[in-house]
């Protein structure tokens, strides 16, 4: 069984949220966007990205040599991840400088930053696609990481812009969130059924998940509660309630953090089973 990797949980979830926010800002910027909301969201994304990068250092045995991590780009996804995130951090500085200018090229800058960020997130997920770990060795791993990006990026922008964004923009964001939740539920169901056929290690992961109270808490926070709230909202189509947005954000944030912690905890690797 894996271990609770809190530095990695924080690094991946915060990093994905930061990149998700920038991507959503790029998406919303097709039409007019409230500048105060835009600036707040841009600043928060930078803060989260910085926190994520700092958190990642706590995973290393020798963080003082972390700079070496970009020296094996030919085969190591971890090297590629770090390089992409460093580029994203530099691009964010350019992005924020453009946000502060009244006629800055913020959409271009957001596009560049989110591209590097998304490449970083993809590389981040590919680190775990290891033949030794059936629970990670599938297309589901990149999908989970990208879904977290869309879900938490969209929800953070919803919370920040709940009073200033137009109704159509808020609805657009809710639709992104709803799609992410639905895809997350469906893909996880497929993931569990695939794992059950992935040998002894895959079945151990399934058994661990189903027996873990954390998993069931995640089911409620990440899937059931958001699904009920969103279906209720879409069926009534009234104006967007601020409480709904905040509840969604809290539930999904807890769910995603639990989900990522379980991702590391439930990893069972193929190993020597002879007696020690």
């Amino acid at each position: 069984m894996g271990t609770m990797e809190w530095p990695l949980v924080l690094f991946t979830v915060l990093g994905e949220t930061a990149i998700g926010i920038i991507f959503v800002l790029w998406w919303l910027d097709r039409a007019e966007v409230d500048p105060i909301f835009y600036k707040k969201a841009a600043l928060l994304s930078g803060l989260l990205l910085a926190l994520a990068l700092i958190a990642s250092l706590f995973h290393l045995g020798r963080p003082e040599y972390a700079y070496r991590a970009v020296s094996h780009l030919s085969t190591s996804w971890l090297s590629r991840e770090i390089l992409c995130f460093l580029f994203a951090a530099v691009a964010w500085l350019y992005f924020y400088s453009q946000v502060r200018q009244p006629k800055g090229k913020r959409r271009l800058a957001a596009g560049i930053t989110s591209t590097f960020g998304l490449l970083g997130i993809f590389s981040s997920s590919m680190i775990y696609v290891l033949p030794r770990v059936p629970a990670w060795d599938s297309v589901q791993t990149p999908l989970f990481f990208l879904l977290t990006t869309g879900l938490l990026g969209g929800l953070t922008c919803l919370v920040l812009g709940r009073k200033t964004l137009k109704l159509s923009q808020l609805q657009e964001l809710l639709l992104i969130v709803f799609t992410c939740v639905l895809v997350s539920i469906l893909s996880f169901a497929i993931y569990l059924s695939m794992l059950n056929t992935a040998g002894m290690e895959g079945m151990s992961t399934v058994q661990f998940l189903l027996a873990s109270p954390l998993f069931w808490l995640r089911v409620v926070a990440n899937w059931l509660l958001p699904l009920i709230l969103l279906v209720t909202y879409f069926s009534k189509q009234k104006t967007i309630n601020a409480n709904l947005v905040i509840m969604l954000f809290i539930a999904c944030s807890i769910g995603e953090l639990l989900g990522r912690a379980l991702f590391y905890l439930s990893a069972v690797g193929i190993s020597i089973t002879a007696l020690k």
């Binding site: 045995g61 070496r68 020296s71 190591s76 971890l78 680190i127 990893a267």
Partner: peptide, 30 residues
């Protein structure tokens, strides 16, 4: 998977780990 290139494979096939380069990310352990 090693991000720092701490592992090398010699011409005789021996895989050597350079302790001085390792940053302790534990990905090789996984």
């Amino acid at each position: 998977v090693c991000p720092v290139g701490a592992y090398t494979k010699r011409d005789d096939g021996i895989v050597i780990h350079d302790d001085n380069r390792c940053i302790g990310c534990r990905l090789c352990v996984m």
